[in-house]
Structure formats: structure tokens, C-alpha cells
């Protein structure tokens, strides 16, 4: 824990969290905290449990043991209704955007609004137009996800994550499969979200360049453990060699 994080109330806390799939231990005793309004980039080699961390946070999977707090709620003990409230605060940008194939872009964004808010149809339409114009897809409302390019899909996925105005934004590999320029656009959107809406951002990425532009804090995972955690400078000084190599690899 750094002195920086203790000053502000943490938005996300992992406390000794472990997770195994079958006999394969993915996460081992992970503990860290992310202050509200900051951006955390999670780095690490493939298969070290970075994405699992986000899914644990979203309660898509349950930890084997350990505790996770989201804005003061311990989510592993919540029932469906409580979880629903917590999830409502978070937006998730999936790796391949995970847009619903059978729905148009508009319907993809309208679904959470219909389900989770009491907004009227007009308000919903206004919100969607607003979010889509933020990500630069205002003219593609009626398109089906399959007809969107990779970058557009990512932006559409981001739009869906933002449509509920989340206090915590989770992004799984936002720049994977994209060219540098497109990836930079996505990073730009994440940064804007953080600065304009004081949204806490957690990004899992391989793209160290992008990570350094987005992140305030960095977590490096190695073989299921947290190898290093802190600001860029701290991680560069880490005892762990993998962490040092990963953070400076750009």
C-alpha cells in the first residue's frame, strides 16, 4: 500500500483474494486498493489472471476465498438484489466488446437503460445519442454489431459500458486487435471519462504505452500473484524483474 492510496476513500479493495479453476490456481492472495477517481492499469503476461480480476469485481465469478469491496460493499456476501445495485455502479468494456449479436447498436445500448433505469423513452433516446456521439458512432445507431469494424465495436462496447453513467469503469484489453491510432482513440476516451466524470477506471492491458497514458496506478501480475503495485515510478523500482521489464517495455 502506498501513502497515496490511503488519503482518499478507496473505490475498490481486494483483500487476500484467491481463485482457482479446477486444479489451476489463477489468483493467489491478491490484495490491493484503488482510490476513487483514479485509473489502475493491470499488466501481466497472458494467463496470469488479469481478466479474472475484473470478472471477480463484477461478480461474474466468485472468489474461492478473500474479500472484495466496491465502494464500501463487500460483494462476495451480497445477494442478487445487492449485487444488482453494485453492478449498477460499474460499466464493463469486454475484450471483444461483447455486443449482443442479435440486437442493433441502439438496442444494445437501450437494453440496460430499459432494464436498470426508470428513464422514459425520450430520455433513453437522448442518453444513447449523447453517449454515441461521445464515442463517435452517432450515425451508426441502427447497425448490427457484425457490420461494425473492430475499432467501432470497441467504441460501441465502451458506449454500452458508459450508458449507465458508471462510477467505476472496467475495461478488458481495450486496445487489443486495434491499430495504434485506434487504440489511442480508445485510451483517449477512457482518460476523458476519468477526468470529466471522476470515474474510477480499471484497465487490463498488454499495451504498456497505452497503459502509461491512462494509468495513475499500475499492478503487475506474475504467476497469479501481485508482483508490483503503485505509480509507474514505484513499479519501475520494483524488486520483481518481470514487473520492471513489463512497465518499461515500450
Amino acid at each position: 500500500m502506498t501513502s497515496e492510496t490511503s488519503e482518499i476513500r478507496p473505490a475498490v479493495v481486494f483483500d487476500n483474494v484467491s481463485k482457482a479453476f479446477g486444479s489451476k490456481q489463477i489468483l493467489r492472495d491478491i490484495s490491493f486498493a484503488v482510490p476513487a477517481g483514479r485509473a489502475l492499469c493491470i499488466l501481466g503476461r497472458s494467463g496470469t489472471g488479469k481478466s479474472v480480476t475484473l470478472k471477480l469485481l463484477m461478480s461474474l465469478i466468485k472468489p474461492d476465498h478473500g474479500k472484495i469491496w466496491v465502494e464500501g460493499d463487500e460483494i462476495t456476501r451480497l445477494n442478487e438484489a445487492g449485487l444488482s445495485k453494485v453492478r449498477r455502479k460499474m460499466g464493463f468494456l469486454f475484450q471483444d466488446a461483447a455486443l449482443f449479436d442479435s440486437l442493433t447498436l441502439y438496442e444494445n445500448l437501450a437494453l440496460p437503460l430499459h432494464r436498470l433505469t426508470t428513464k422514459s423513452q425520450d430520455e433513453i433516446d437522448a442518453t444513447i445519442d449523447n453517449v454515441l456521439s461521445q464515442v463517435g458512432l452517432a450515425g451508426d445507431k441502427q447497425k448490427m454489431p457484425v457490420s461494425l469494424s473492430g475499432g467501432m465495436r470497441k467504441r460501441a462496447g465502451l458506449a454500452r459500458a458508459l450508458v449507465l453513467e458508471p462510477r467505476i469503469l472496467l475495461a478488458d484489453e481495450p486496445s487489443s486487435g486495434l491499430d495504434r491510432i485506434t487504440a489511442a482513440e480508445i485510451d483517449e476516451l477512457l482518460i476523458r471519462q476519468k477526468t470529466q466524470h471522476q470515474t474510477t477506471v480499471m484497465v487490463v492491458t498488454h499495451d504498456v504505452h497505452g497503459a502509461r497514458s491512462v494509468g495513475d496506478l499500475f499492478a503487475v501480475f506474475d504467476k497469479g500473484s501481485l508482483a508490483a503495485f503503485g505509480a509507474a515510478a514505484e513499479v519501475e523500482q520494483s524488486e520483481n524483474e518481470t514487473a520492471r521489464r513489463l512497465i518499461s517495455e515500450y
Binding site: L60, R87, F92, F94, L99, R115
Partner: peptide, 8 residues
């Protein structure tokens, strides 16, 4: 997962 993340 996307659907679940929307609490559906």
C-alpha cells in the same frame, strides 16, 4: 458475461 454485468 455482458448480460450478467448488466444485472440481467
Amino acid at each position: 458475461d455482458g448480460i450478467e454485468s448488466l444485472s440481467i
